[in-house]
Design a protein around this nucleic acid. Sequence first.
RNA 1: GCUCCCUUCGUCUAGCGGUUAGGACGCGGCCCUCUCAAGGCUGAAACACGAGUUCGAUUCUCGUAGGGAGCGCCA
Length: 471
Amino acid sequence: MTTRTRFAPSPTGFLHVGGARTALYCWLQARHEQGDFILRIEDTDLERSTPESVQAILDGMDWLELDYDEGPFYQTKRFDRYAEVVDQLLAEGKAYHCWCSKERIEKLREKQMEEGIKPRYDGKCRDGGEPVPGVKPVVRFRNPREGHVRFDDRVRGPIAISNDELDDLVIARPDGSPTYNFTVVVDDWDMKVTLVIRGDDHINNTPRQINIYEALGAKPPEFAHVPMILGDDGARLSKRHGAVSVLQYREMGYLPHALNNYLVRLGWSHGDQEVFSRQEMIDLFSIDGVNRKAAAFDYDKLNWLNQHWMKTLPPADVAPHLAWQFEHLGIDASQGPALEDLVTVQADRVKTLKEMAEQSRMFYEDFDSFDAGAAKKHLRPVAEAPLRAIREALRDLQSWTPASLDDAVRGVAAELEVGMGKVAQPLRVALAGSGVSPSIDKTLWLVGQERSLARITKALEYIAVRAAGQD
RNA sequence: GCUCCCUUCGUCUAGCGGUUAGGACGCGGCCCUCUCAAGGCUGAAACACGAGUUCGAUUCUCGUAGGGAGCGCCA
């Protein structure tokens, strides 16, 4: 039987890293076993589901390049099917109508809590409830009262729970709409899912779902419950605590592959290997190797991986993502150095594509003023001679390459009998406007001949004005 | 309260009865150096606790403590 996994988010918010990792694991497991990966949108909560959230999930999957073989399926389009199964269960006596009011259930719960027992439905209507005039009943699943439910979790190992811990859960509301624990079962059954990979907050739901499978005469799939992801500080991820949409990682300047690499390694390992290509992830990943412990999200490590991939991936693969950043920052990168060249020289010095774009602005746009500190330190009268000399040297340069530019700068330093720093730093401030930029040959190369000459002239003017002002 | 789950450096992890407890991120130091980086070398840093089992426990068992999840007509 071929493996079929599914990712089944509910569209009540964006796709966050925890969900993304679950999706990645589902996708990897399916790809590893050459099975199918299904996307299903669990939108039965009409109150909280929104089209925006659906789109955010789809966009997130897309950005992470997690392609699915089937779907997206929407549960709201399957209501007829759920109703059909509810009727079947009702007809077979495996489910029953319940007229108990929410108030009664609420009181019951309070009483049970006081008594120190686990709150659950007491089964008042289990053996024939009394219809209440004007009240439409819910449908409850008749859970077995005896025995245990056992399953062998692919991540947690054997788990057993006694049926007397379970109550008769509601599977259909008064308006006939189905509830979660019921729809997952029907869907996973209909969609022939063989392996359910999901967050470990569902462990407690699993036994009751298995009971539903059995009532349906269906073979339950295998389960793999993966732990959640904690915030930077080890605390649970929440809205105000770093739980951001995966799309925000794009804005922050991370490569989708870097995030995938980080996520796959968060809770799973293959010996000491830290870096995985997409193909290596597929070849080596196994859900059975996933850790049981919740893991804390560490931006430092993500940054490291992101830089690693910016340096390692072919520049042409990184360039489109960098282009997105320029566009997002409103920088027109059409006139100036090729993005591939930019990636090659900047990848060593930034952690994110956003930083790369921000620090590359000067290759595409002229600046109005020099960084005050850098100018004060380097654009002084002593810099005049080196700047004039380098301007002369560059003016007639035929070959504008890093190598020839390096020769030119070194030549000037030798000629004036000064260290490289005496030439390179003033030149850097002239070209970049600040004291920080790539190595001076690469900076010249990327700024280009015409712009370089103009900026050196501007720096010389600045020095002259400043000298005059000090007189 | 009840049920289930979890516990190796700050963080992510390797380990699968005998190891100087390994790697990675981050952090410190040194080297390189035209700035910032990157890179190289190097250093500090962990088995939650207590009982068993065993010749021997990080590893197996049971407790304790701490943490998490669930107990919905949410998913």
